[in-house]
Design a protein around this nucleic acid. Sequence first.
DNA 1: TTTTAAACCGACCACATGGTCGGTAGGCAT
DNA 2: ATGCCTACCGACCATGTGGTCGGTTTAAAA
Lengths: 202, 202
Amino acid sequence: MPIERNAEHTRARILEAAQEEIYENGYQGMRIETILQKTQLAKGALYYHFPNKLALGYAVVDEILLEHVKANWSEFSSKYPNPLTAIQQLFLWKADVYKNEIHFKGCPLNNLNQEMASIDKGFHERLEKIMATIHGSIFAALEQGQQQGLVRKDINPGKIAMFIMASYQGIIGAAKCMQAPQLLADLFGTLNEYIDTLRTPA
Amino acid sequence: MPIERNAEHTRARILEAAQEEIYENGYQGMRIETILQKTQLAKGALYYHFPNKLALGYAVVDEILLEHVKANWSEFSSKYPNPLTAIQQLFLWKADVYKNEIHFKGCPLNNLNQEMASIDKGFHERLEKIMATIHGSIFAALEQGQQQGLVRKDINPGKIAMFIMASYQGIIGAAKCMQAPQLLADLFGTLNEYIDTLRTPA
DNA sequence: TTTTAAACCGACCACATGGTCGGTAGGCAT
DNA sequence: ATGCCTACCGACCATGTGGTCGGTTTAAAA
């Protein structure tokens, strides 16, 4: 069974393997040799699709992480009309997904951010763009909630959106550091209690 | 002016240089060559004091980071008798310290945690120990506050302590990712508002 | 069928990097 | 002064790693 000779597909496989490697070892810990092993490709193939290691790393951010975030968010914001509820449900879902992870590796986006944002400018620019996207989504949700009378009007949507995003990252990070994804339920629970205080009092 | 031949001092210089390197490039990005350059030592000196790179990394955690955290905390908890206020002041101080950083590199402890906790067991164990120390401090502060009637008695000190710690990390991380330490004031401000809700109502 | 270019192969290279080891100098006890 | 051990030197090694390049295969056009 010869592996299909399809450029797009090959490129996608490389990206996927690279994403996995970065997720497990960080960008600096990712080895192209390992990617070749995982994809059963030769070096020439990889360097045909990507000029160098850095470009591959960038591509993972642009084509995998960004899309993943967008998909995630749009799913929940369309499922739950109340924006605060959408955010809370997203958190609970994350807690549930990672609950039984044997080896919890955290959030791919946050990991890369922590590792590379202050080291490499290219990564920083790309990752900041994603962060801005997320922040913009939460911000818009809060503002929309205010207009609909669902969210208190005495809060600053920009600041609160940033805080929620930061707490989310922190929670994932803490659970990762402690290697204890079962903490996520409690932590997101506490965060969700805080989010409840943003609702318009009944 | 011959550099003093003092084993303890030399070892300390190596550790300091290593800490800086890790802070700037992560453990995986730290290079022995750079440390030798910074300390003006030869390779033999470094490998006389440390058996290998990993041991050096571990030593940085045990002898630099842990001590730094302990010193930080004890300073503020002794300066402010109200535990909640001590925590809040510590945050505001951090925001102020980093405010004008040109190239904000985040929190050394959090950085290493994010990078190595899920990769290397030795790092994980050591870093978790520090996290547990911090958590224990906040936990004790909250419990003590409850006994003194300063902190609401309907909250779970363990969970809240974990949440505060996670949020702290997240805030530092977010500011790092955005390369915007001026965000810290707002973010810690929001966190402190949350902490205010933990006080016993007047 | 022949041609052509995209897609892929894999041996090879340059060099960075962690680590070794025989040697040397400083300082302290005798 | 002499011996001796700690502290340090720096050339050298083994290996890992990103990257190159001439060549080969596949698929579709001519």
